[in-house]
Amino acid sequence: MPTFEVDHLSLHYLTRFGEKIQAVSDVSFTMEQGEILGIAGESGCGKSTLVNGLMGLFIPPLYPTSGDVRVGGESLMKRTPQDIRKNVLSQKVSMIPQGAFNALNPTRKIKDIAADVIASHTGGHTSKKDIEARLRERFDLFGMDTERVLNAFPIQLTAGERQRSVIGISTLLNPQMVIADEPTSALDVTTQKVVIRMIFDLLEKGIFNTMIFITHELPLLRHVANNIAIMYAGEFVEKGTNEQVVFDPRHPYTQALMGSMLSAEPGQKSRKPVSIEGAPPSLAKVPPGCRFAARCPVARADCKTQKQELRMVAGRLVRCNYAE
């Protein structure tokens, strides 16, 4: 049985004026144990909304439109946020957020924050002492300055220490599955490497074994993920293995994304990166045809009107009728 299954998941927001914004449309995938799936796309593409949907955490104005999410066969849909927080989060699925600073209460010490989080996710069955002992063991394992970090307020730590603390706390109960939402986007490259190394250590030690890693940095996914899905305007437009997507992209959007990347590799300075002009369509009024057509350099006449379905192209899924 797959560890994690997402079945035709669509999610929408309802605004105060009754307007429906279709943030995520028809996302399906399954994950086996040990898999790392990277999801990439620009801001506003629905990545962060998808994260909430994948945890079954529906807090108005976010609502599920249709579809199902199952962890180890158990559905996360149609459950209250309280139920999800108490019985799913931290234990089965954990989230690593982007801004560690916003995730940590500035007025509490790291060890108290950990106790709060774990207590709220286990219904208060674990004692504070137990939690602290486990956290101490974890932090030691990752070569952190355990005593200082545990007794520090968030502001007294470096950005890297904060993010590693957040990861340590959210994986304390050995969840099967971790969803990391841009865990390193706010960090500099050196700290990013340290944080990724910690994530690799956690994987190697089996503290969790399946991960969804969300970012807008494709080169990073090249080194972190097994499989990569590219998201655009709420849909997956391409999904394949790491090598397929990075080295041989087939969807025009993926190709454009790769073309806009910059690097300091020899000979790269003469290559002119091309940024993608224009903006993604408004999700309040989803175009009937290809959502990328308005910005696509190779769009054809009927792309704007013809519905595009995911289909197999060169061994991976691509949502473009003309890709080959």
Partner: peptide, 25 residues
């Protein structure tokens, strides 16, 4: 291309590049 300081080397190494070895799982 010819970094002299170890800190420069570190900065260059830490960027995940598509064609270059980086952290390995």
């Amino acid at each position: 291309q010819h970094p002299q300081s170890p800190h420069t080397v570190q900065l260059l190494e830490d960027i995940p590049e598509i064609h270059k070895e980086w952290l390995k799982r």
